[in-house]
């Protein structure tokens, strides 16, 4: 366990780097549209060198699906987490730095969002907005900002009374400038610890939405691949297992590297 604590971040980071490279080079590894039907349906993995991981029920290349799916999962995951963290930082800073009324109002809103499970909220939003990649990002962003907001608020509250903040105030700087330029940078460090978790969760929610058929039908995604293969679990289990492994590995890599980064920055104790 100690070894894992020391090197987990490094391993996670390396795996993440590999996944990112694969996502970037998807069009080189598997040229063409990954949704095209290119071979005999249900070719098992490791039987045809042209389609090393086999094909699905419509003869689509699974390897192409996985590498192009990496692109979708990573982009949507990163974009959604970025959206969630930005909203969280904004709300958290405003709430922490403003007076009681705004703080109370923002925190009650945050709690209202927290009472609805993240996934249900994202599900409802995508059903209303329509299934497209941009809407999935928006939906995940809207449904997963509260933890960041609460964390940032707590940090801002802690730093608000610091001497350098008082100094800035006495120097006559505008309150918003103090909040975002003086207090916020100091409050950001713990947020780094949340990045891994937020991105990991965003990837999971994206996959779950795709599994339920609520993702852009014109893009291939790991969750969608699991959904398509589900009916054939008995006949061709690899259709579910391969993208399932991809999701698990990606989420693990993201979480480990987020953890490692936080440790390195001294936010989480080394013990």
């Amino acid at each position: 366990m100690k070894w894992m604590r020391c090197h987990g971040g490094l391993i996670g980071g390396l795996v993440l780097l590999v996944i990112a490279l694969i996502a970037l080079c998807a069009h080189l590894i598997a040229p063409g549209d990954p949704l095209n039907m290119v071979a005999r349906p249900l070719t098992p993995p490791f039987t045809d060198p042209r389609f090393p991981l086999g094909t699905d029920h419509l003869g689509r290349n699974i390897l192409a699906g996985l590498v192009h799916g990496a692109r979708v999962s990573m982009t949507v995951g990163a974009a959604a987490a970025a959206a969630a963290i930005s909203v969280g930082i904004l709300v958290g800073t405003l709430a922490g730095f403003s007076g009681r009324i705004i703080d109370d109002a923002l925190m009650r809103i945050t709690e209202a969002f927290q009472t609805v499970p993240t996934f249900l909220l994202a599900l409802a939003l995508v059903s209303v907005l329509g299934a497209s990649a941009a809407n999935v990002v928006i939906a995940i962003g809207i449904s997963s900002w509260p933890p960041t907001a609460r964390l940032v608020r707590a940090e801002v509250l802690r730093l608000k009374g610091a001497d350098y903040v008082d100094a800035a105030r006495l120097a006559g700087r505008a309150p918003l400038a103090i909040a975002f330029l003086e207090v916020l940078p100091g409050a950001l460090q713990p947020v780094v610890a949340l990045i891994g978790i937020t991105v990991g969760e965003a990837i999971l929610v994206e996959s779950a939405l795709a599994f339920l058929g609520l993702s852009d039908p014109n893009l291939i995604s790991w969750g969608g691949m699991v959904a398509n293969g589900r009916a054939l679990l008995r006949t061709a289990p690899y259709l579910v297992v391969l993208p399932g492994i991809a999701i698990a590995v990606a989420v693990l890599a993201v979480t480990l590297s987020g953890d490692g980064l936080a440790r390195r920055l001294g936010i989480l104790g080394r013990r």
Binding site: P41, H57, A231, L232, R234, T235
Partner: peptide, 8 residues
């Protein structure tokens, strides 16, 4: 049932 399951 899925057509791909018919043979099985």
């Amino acid at each position: 049932v899925p057509l791909t399951d018919m043979a099985r």
